[in-house]
Amino acid sequence: PRRPPAPAAAGDPSKEQAVVFTRIRLADRFDVPNIHRLIHQMAEFELLTNLFSATESSLTSTLFPSPPLPPFRSFTILILELSHSPIPKSADDDDSNLGFRPILGRIVLKSTVVDPESSTFASPRGNGLVVAGFLLCFPNYSSFMGLPGIYVEDIFVREAWRRLGMGKMMLAAVAGEAARLGCGRVEWCVLDWNENAIAFYNGMGAEVLPQWRICRLTGEELSKFAVD
Results as ranks from 00 to 15, higher is better:
186 V>M: 11
60 T>Q: 03
181 L>G: 00
31 D>Q: 09
120 T>K: 09
36 H>G: 01
25 R>H: 13
41 Q>V: 00
205 G>H: 08
43 A>Q: 01
202 N>P: 03
179 A>Q: 13
83 S>Q: 06
168 K>S: 13
109 L>N: 06
35 I>V: 15
157 V>K: 01
8 A>S: 14
58 S>I: 08
166 M>E: 06
184 G>R: 09
162 R>M: 08
23 R>Y: 01
152 V>E: 10
20 V>L: 13
107 I>V: 14
144 F>P: 06
79 I>Y: 03
93 D>E: 10
212 W>K: 14
222 L>V: 02
132 A>P: 04
197 A>I: 02
121 F>T: 05
211 Q>V: 12
182 G>T: 15
90 S>P: 01
76 T>R: 02
42 M>Y: 04
203 G>M: 10
14 S>C: 08
163 R>G: 07
36 H>I: 02
79 I>M: 14
176 G>Y: 07
26 L>D: 08
205 G>M: 07
194 N>I: 00
113 V>S: 07
220 E>S: 12
207 E>I: 04
45 F>W: 11
78 L>N: 06
220 E>Q: 11
20 V>I: 15
60 T>A: 13
163 R>D: 12
2 R>K: 03
87 I>V: 09
203 G>L: 12
40 H>E: 14
161 W>P: 05
27 A>P: 05
156 F>S: 01
189 C>R: 08
223 S>R: 15
76 T>C: 10
121 F>S: 05
187 E>K: 09
65 P>D: 09
199 A>S: 14
150 I>C: 12
18 A>D: 13
155 I>S: 10
121 F>M: 06
96 S>N: 07
16 E>S: 15
193 W>E: 06
207 E>D: 07
155 I>T: 15
58 S>V: 13
180 R>Q: 14
31 D>E: 05
54 A>W: 04
100 F>G: 09
62 T>F: 02
148 P>S: 12
60 T>V: 00
67 P>C: 05
82 L>H: 04
12 D>H: 08
125 R>F: 11
142 S>V: 04
124 P>A: 15
70 P>Q: 10
187 E>Y: 00
153 E>T: 07
52 F>A: 15
94 D>H: 03
15 K>E: 12
181 L>C: 03
33 P>N: 04
21 F>S: 03
193 W>H: 05
80 L>T: 00
83 S>W: 00
182 G>K: 08
37 R>I: 02
199 A>L: 11
157 V>G: 01
147 L>M: 11
86 P>L: 08
211 Q>H: 12
185 R>D: 00
88 P>W: 06
33 P>G: 06
29 R>W: 01
4 P>W: 03
221 E>T: 04
64 F>P: 06
137 C>H: 01
95 D>C: 09
176 G>D: 13
196 N>V: 10
140 N>F: 12
190 V>G: 08
29 R>M: 01
173 A>K: 07
69 L>F: 03
168 K>C: 00
203 G>T: 14
91 A>H: 11
62 T>N: 11
175 A>F: 02
158 R>K: 12
197 A>F: 02
210 P>K: 14
82 L>Y: 01
119 S>R: 09
56 E>K: 05
199 A>P: 00
8 A>D: 14
93 D>Q: 07
94 D>M: 08
112 T>R: 11
170 M>N: 10
96 S>A: 14
98 L>M: 13
123 S>N: 12
201 Y>S: 10
